[in-house]
């Protein structure tokens, strides 16, 4: 009896404490966010706001910026270099998002389905490693390798063409304005392909094998199983890969810097390289900031759209 009373009294005694204590506990967790908040303010938020602010000014990097309102943006609309750089961006999206995703799907399904099942997972792992290797390579190194292979004189590709009797196909792969963009695209496919492949192969592992067995019993061929089982099952991975690769394609800088420096004659210029040269070579900081601000708006808008699509497809799946 006394025990119960005591317990009751203690419970009552602690209750008024528990009320106000809860929010205090939650708030004190916010202290752990303090270093991160300070660091992000200094390194991301402030520079980003400065860049956006500078995009409404004319500034050479020294002295004080002159407020010019939307003049930079109006100028950009008439700048053919600006439009060309964004057009090249679309080519990069093809080379770094569309083509690697399609090839990655086919390769992942072939490695998982055929090689993994009939020759053992060791074969699949070794082949996957070959495809993934360029992904860990610094882009500067990939650039050195490829610009030497694609060199007009004594380059390996031209030598190879000559050796197999296709000498007339020899090209100045990176120096011919009509071809350079496609050469860069080819290199980017090579660089990028490993990422979708690895993600898709991981995704395939969670697909129920019974689905395939049932389809096989029903007489579905490889292609139909791919289309009706593989694709719908790994749709979340496809969205993730497309999001990441598209954004990476819009940001591409290092490859252009080492392979072509945007040339010849601006034939491979992309927005990020264009803003880089405007900042640091032409020192038109305001104009460069406007270019990078537009690039940022496009990337953030695209991220939001793709994230929304991804969330919707995940919800659709669980429903």
């Amino acid at each position: 009896m006394t025990v119960t009373v005591e317990r009751g009294a203690r419970a009552v005694g602690t209750d008024p404490h528990a009320g106000p204590r809860r929010p205090r506990t939650r708030d004190s967790y916010a202290l752990f966010l303090l270093p991160g908040a300070l660091a992000f303010t200094a390194i991301i938020i402030v520079p980003f706001l400065m860049n956006t602010g500078v995009s409404f000014t004319e500034w050479q990097g020294v002295g004080s910026p002159q407020w010019t309102g939307l003049a930079n943006y109006r100028e950009l609309l008439d700048d053919s270099e600006f439009w060309a750089s964004f057009r090249h961006s679309l080519f990069m999206v093809v080379a770094m998002a569309a083509v690697p995703t399609v090839l990655g799907l086919v390769l992942a399904a072939a490695l998982f389905d055929y090689i993994g099942k009939h020759f053992g997972s060791r074969w699949a792992a070794v082949l996957r490693a070959c495809f993934y290797l360029p992904q860990v390579l610094p882009i500067a190194v990939a650039g050195i390798v490829w610009s030497w292979i694609l060199a007009p004189d004594n380059g390996s590709l031209n030598e190879l063409l000559k050796a197999v009797g296709l000498g007339s196909w020899q090209q100045d792969w990176l120096g011919d304005p009509d071809i350079a963009l496609y050469s860069v695209m080819g290199v980017m496919v090579w660089v990028q392909i490993g990422f979708p492949l690895v993600v898709f192969m991981a995704g395939l592992q969670r697909v129920d094998p019974q689905l395939y067995e049932a389809a096989e019993l029903d007489g579905a061929g490889w292609w139909r199983r791919f289309w009706h089982i593989t694709l719908p099952q790994i749709r979340p991975e496809i969205y993730v890969v497309l999001t990441w690769c598209t954004i990476a394609a819009l940001k591409v800088f290092g490859a252009v810097y080492v392979l072509t420096k945007g040339g010849p004659g601006g034939a491979t210029d992309v927005p990020s390289y264009f803003s880089f040269t405007t900042f640091f070579e032409k020192t038109q900081v305001g104009y460069g900031a406007a270019i990078s601000t537009i690039l940022t708006v496009i990337i953030l808008a695209l991220s939001l759209v793709l994230l929304a699509l991804q969330t919707r497809s995940e919800e659709g799946e669980s429903a």
């Binding site: 402030v46 400065m50 819009l250 803003s275 900031a289 990078s292 690039l295 940022t296 990337i299």
Partner: peptide, 24 residues
């Protein structure tokens, strides 16, 4: 919102930070 901020910060192109970081 905090998490959304980190995701967006991650998406942000470095071109939009590079000059101010250089200057600062």
């Amino acid at each position: 919102w905090v998490l959304a901020f980190f995701v967006l910060a991650n998406m942000l192109p470095q071109e939009a930070l590079v000059y101010p970081l250089y200057y600062l």
